[in-house]
Computed example of a mutant assay.
Amino acid sequence: MWAMTAASTTTAPTPPHAGRRLELVSAAQRVVGAGGLRALTHRAVDADAGLPEGSCSSYYRTKVALLGALTEHIGHQLRVSVLDLGGRLDVVHARHPDGQERADAVVGEVVALFERWLDEPGLVVTQAELGLEALRQPELGAALAQWRAGLVDVVAEIAAGSGKECSRGRADGLVAALEGILLGGLTHGAGDGPARAERAAYLTDAVLLVLTPLA
């Protein structure tokens, strides 16, 4: 039986922001998603949120404080999604104990998650921007590290459920490959019709290449 891991048993984390603070960090996500970190200013956040000028700075006095809050917001969204993926994969295992059907279902769940993330490209872009910024400001890295650690757990669980050895180091490397696939998805079509089908085909082929040996 597929062993339950932290990724699939942990209670969903409490959102780090609510009320006006949530409005502001959500606006900050849209600003960064559209224009990168260079576009992130208190004034830009106020404008995007439709709030009077000075609103953002009254909650987050400095850009460092705003970046920290935004990182928590992004990390929370990604971690919740990864925890949900862990639960979905437990269901996959229960329905498909082994064989090609399970492998296809595992890949399908990962692709579906990536599709949902890419339907909100600002989320993926902001995560990538913050990931690079965390190299310069390590204090930003903790919130992002949590969701990534959860995805490493899920990959290791896929291998364990198949009776295959997968060290945490190898699982970490596979997650790096999945992150590359996700970023690559930004360059493929979005919306409906042929463009979306092209993106889905790219994601399926790429995720199959990475995960099939484990699933």
Rank of each mutant, 00 (worst) to 15 (best):
D192L: 11
L209F: 13
V175Q: 04
G180D: 04
A156K: 03
V175N: 04
G173Q: 06
L208N: 14
G122T: 10
A149M: 05
A142T: 07
A176G: 13
Q127R: 15
E120A: 15
D192W: 14
T204K: 10
A201E: 13
G122M: 07
W147P: 00
V124C: 11
V125P: 02
G169F: 06
L130R: 03
R196I: 04
L203F: 01
A156D: 01
A171Y: 02
T187P: 00
G173I: 02
L211P: 08
Q127A: 15
G122Q: 05
Q127Y: 11
A200S: 14
A190S: 15
E133F: 00
L132K: 09
V154Y: 02
G131M: 10
T126D: 10
G191M: 04
I158T: 12
E120G: 02
E179G: 07
L186H: 03
Y202E: 06
L151S: 05
D192P: 02
A143Y: 03
H188E: 12
E179R: 11
V207S: 04
P194L: 01
Q137K: 08
R170P: 00
G180Y: 07
A200I: 11
A190P: 00
V155M: 08
L144G: 14
Q137P: 00
A215Y: 02
V125L: 14
D172S: 15
V207Q: 07
A206N: 03
G189C: 03
G193T: 08
L118A: 11
L183D: 01
L140E: 02
G141M: 09
E129A: 15
V124R: 05
